[in-house]
Simulated scan of single mutants.
Amino acid sequence: MKPIRVGKIAFTNILPIYHYFDDRGTEVELIPMVPSQLNRGMAAGEIDLGPISSFAYAENYPHFVLMPDLSISAMGPVGSIFLFTRGKELSELRHARIALTNTSASSVNLLRVLLEKFEGGSPDYVTMPPCLDEMMKEADAALLIGDDAIKALWHHSGYRVLDLGEEWHKYTGLSMTFAVWAVRREIAETRMEELAEIYLRFMKAKEQGRREPLPVIREAMRQLGGERDFWTKYYDGLCYDLREQQLEGLKTYYRYAAELGLLSSDVEICMLDLPAGLGMR
């Protein structure tokens, strides 16, 4: 039987889960990609499970189920999803030209909710590779995510930096879930025993990442640089749960996106039906 193909976001935000993930035993093939690649791979059946953009789940929800209690979320600043501007606030960008990274789905559409629903704007969007210098030649503001956003924060002074997790929280008071762990339905229907084992490994990895953050921080420093204090604060601001608080924010995000015509209005959040005893801790 073929190994289960597990996507892995190629950003440091996922390290608290994957640094301790045990891919031995049950045959697992880890496939690192940026979020937009994982979204396409899941939709095309090239990936069996993995952390995809929460927006991509909503676009394809009849074909996916979610692993319980796994997400990338934030209640306030997320620390790696930034809109870079020339000194302007969000309210001053209602009719601006905005460069969007081509590596994201959830963040791009979150920005549209913020600007179009909450600010009543109608910006002109252009999608580009994640290079801040080139993006700002073409636009009044630029959206970057993940490691691209962190590196731009470190190396490009002079811009105002708006954190989209913080902006969402200002408007709603809610958590924002940027990624969820999705499983293709045909895999859930045919390989439940293996999925249950993989799920347990994810939960063990998440707990170990929470208990032992220093090796994760050292790995992030090895990959990108930066200081220990930066990474400590960064990971403290991220939440990897998918519980009532995160689901409330996620449902609200889906509702606003549907009101703008970005999603259908009937998105269902369906959890993997795990054997007894393997649910949320």
Score class of each variant (00 low, 15 high):
T127R: 13
M136K: 06
L114T: 03
E134C: 15
G41W: 02
P32T: 04
T127E: 15
S80C: 11
S122P: 00
L132R: 10
L132V: 10
S106D: 08
R97I: 01
C131E: 14
M136L: 08
E116T: 02
V78S: 07
T85N: 09
E46T: 10
L66K: 01
T101A: 05
I31G: 00
R40T: 00
L30F: 03
A96N: 02
V65N: 00
A105C: 14
G45V: 00
F55E: 08
P62H: 10
T85A: 07
E116R: 09
M128T: 12
E89H: 13
N60S: 13
H63R: 12
L100A: 07
R86D: 12
R40N: 01
L93E: 03
H63N: 15
T103R: 10
D133E: 15
Y57N: 03
H95I: 06
V65P: 07
L111H: 05
E29P: 07
S122I: 07
A105I: 12
M75S: 14
I47T: 02
K88T: 13
V113F: 04
F55W: 05
H63C: 13
A56I: 09
S36C: 11
A105D: 11
Q37P: 10
T101E: 05
L38C: 10
N109S: 07
R112K: 13
L49W: 05
N102D: 14
G79C: 06
P62Q: 08
I72K: 00
V113E: 05
A99L: 03
L114S: 08
A58Y: 06
G79T: 02
S80M: 05
M135E: 08
R112N: 07
G87T: 04
Y125T: 01
F64I: 08
E119L: 11
K88I: 10
P129R: 15
F118K: 15
T103P: 07
T127L: 15
V34Y: 02
H63S: 15
H63D: 14
K137D: 08
S104V: 04
A43V: 05
N102K: 10
L115C: 03
M136A: 04
L115V: 06
A105R: 15
L93P: 00
